[in-house]
Design a binder for these strands. Structure first.
Lengths: 343, 343
DNA sequence: TATATTTGCTTAATCGTTTAAGCAAAAGTA
DNA sequence: TACTTTTGCTTAAACGATTAAGCAAATATA
């Protein structure tokens, strides 16, 4: 019953009394094989339950049709959605993906890269760990000559394709929205400036304040690790100021949630006493009370674009990889935490 | 600068004027190769930046050292944690994992299985999609003769290894806890009975009621898809009963969150007027107001055990795979939603 | 000293597929 | 008719590693 021995192209060849080469060509619809033979081969292949040996063909062709994906973690809605869309696009083109997580650790990221190169992937799509500063390992990918595509967390210096949202502009949208709600003192709990996307959000925040003639108060701009705990801490810090802000823009949803908890615990009216905006549109932002306004990072488009960019690269291997940024406009989703009812 | 041509075992052999076979053996510390040669080989390998071609060795040895993992989705804390632990254990043994998501769809699950078999994985660790009823595709894995390990969502009829928590006992723990809080009418919003784990939770609920001499009221036992929306709906249904329950045990955290929202919107005092317990210990259960009591499913242990079970199977291929259940005791985490302060 | 064993390598086959090169038969062209 | 071209296949060499079998030299044993 159970067919332990796997059927190979040779078995089909023997069954039909033709050569393995003919079988291979028939299965690939080679023009030099007659329609009759093709039909016969496909019929026998099905009968014998033939499954091509991917390893053999990959070895011979020098192409594995596997694409490696590296993300900081998969249990974030943003990353899992990006992955899903990468998969969807690439599957259609005959590629399969291998997902690995760095857990925000540089060391893990390096070992992931080794793993993927070892598996002979045809390319790597990655979002860098928070910890990552050295680019040695990413250079290693480039030196292998396989396409490297970065998204969300990228690095200009690598001179590769990058897909992300317009962080600078997102900050503008948020500040503009808060100004419209009547806020005059807008604080920003941002990420660390050394990470490019967080630096851009900070720059956008500062420039937007200027645009709306709001003074930049250094005590209202705080760098953070953006964890839930750190969000709580930094929010408390803001509440203890003599001159409290009337709005807080937090560069990550988890930290925004921490801030929300602190505000609720101190019975501060959101959004009337303090408006709150997060970043990332994690599902829980619409689950908590009050719901948190946030930025939609367009994970669907980022995933699709990353996959398409890879395909472009892999299909044009002679074109040298250069810095090539695709920046999407983000979308502000206004929820209860920043929507002042006017009457 | 860039070394396009990859170094092979042959290059090392040429450099040292020995045979490729000797190089291969030296790299694998074969006892029949002299220490001197081994040293020389390893030195040259490093100098030429040799990376073994995984495809070639996998083809030759008939082993890919890849393990496929199929989960309904990765953006759940439970699954991403299980995956992380599987990875940790298997990486140490030289295996890499390929993660695929079914999105709870049977069709996607089938195509994932095909993908993994195509990639010549050495085994598959899976948790079934909600939709999955037919086991044909899983039989296909078994018929290939590679180990199949199921976790969380499994099926007795497949007669393979299974790792999960004690769902029946978990329901007992929850009911016992609610009784201790003084609850007399405990409702259960469960999953569909056709899924074994949900059926077990329902059976546990019914038997626990008996144990504590609480009458089983059919109107208090509701089957659900356990989405947030459905949780809201079923909670409303319970609130509209003439004889309301004083506690609700929901078999999934997302649905529990929906229930919580409805209770909050109706200004019902949790837990005094209505106690609430969820299942799964998703991170948001400790983020919402009030925090939701829930069951910790021991994702760490499940992941590790799944990986170890696979290793056992793969290292003892002659032993026939049979139904082999490893059931862990779950842990009830008591939070504000079910903790009545006694005075 | 003669024989057996161990050491340290080489040779060559193999894994399953792809593909360049080749060749006879059929079909097309002059 | 005599040739070129096309069709439909076969042969055989790869891809890069592993490994069974073999063989000479070194070492051990009787």
């Amino acid at each position: 019953m159970i067919n332990k021995k796997k059927t190979t192209i040779k078995d089909i060849a023997n069954a039909l009394n033709i050569s393995p080469a003919a079988v291979s060509k028939a299965l690939h619809d080679d023009s030099r094989i007659s329609a009759k033979t093709k039909e016969a081969v496909k019929k026998v292949a099905k009968e014998l339950n033939y499954q091509p040996n991917h390893l053999a063909s990959a070895l011979r062709r020098g192409k594995s049709n596997l694409v490696g994906v590296i993300v900081p973690r998969t249990n974030s809605n943003f990353f899992s959605s990006v992955i899903q869309n990468i998969e969807e696009v690439l599957n259609k083109e005959g590629y399969n993906i291998i997902i690995t997580q760095s857990n925000e650790s540089y060391k893990k990221e390096c070992s992931n890269i080794d793993t993927l190169l070892f598996t002979q992937v045809d390319g790597i799509i990655a979002s860098m760990a928070n910890e990552t500063i050295s680019l040695n390992y990413y250079e290693k990918i480039k030196s292998k000559g396989i396409p490297l595509i970065l998204f969300d967390r990228g690095e200009n210096d690598l001179n590769v394709d990058y897909i992300g949202i317009n962080d600078y502009e997102s900050s503008h949208m948020i500040v503009e929205h808060l100004v419209e709600q009547g806020c005059k003192r807008i604080a920003h709990i941002g990420g660390y400036r050394r990470t490019r996307i967080f630096n851009n959000r900070i720059k956008g925040y500062i420039d937007a304040l200027k645009k709306y003639d709001l003074p930049l108060d250094e005590s209202l701009l705080i760098e953070s690790s953006l964890t839930l705990e750190d969000g709580r801490e930094k929010m408390l810090q803001l509440l203890n100021l003599k001159n409290r802000p009337d709005a807080v823009y937090v560069a990550g949803d988890y930290a925004a949630l921490g801030a929300l908890q602190v505000l609720n615990e101190n019975n501060i009216d959101i959004p009337n006493d303090m408006a709150l905006v997060g970043f990332g549109n994690e599902p829980f932002t619409s689950m908590v009370t009050p719901t948190i306004s946030s930025i939609n990072q367009h994970s669907t488009e980022i995933g699709k674009l990353a996959a398409l960019t890879f395909l472009e690269r892999v299909n044009n291997p002679d074109i040298k990889q250069t810095l090539n940024k695709k920046i999407l406009d983000a979308e502000l989703i206004i929820r209860d935490s920043s929507h002042v009812k006017k009457d």
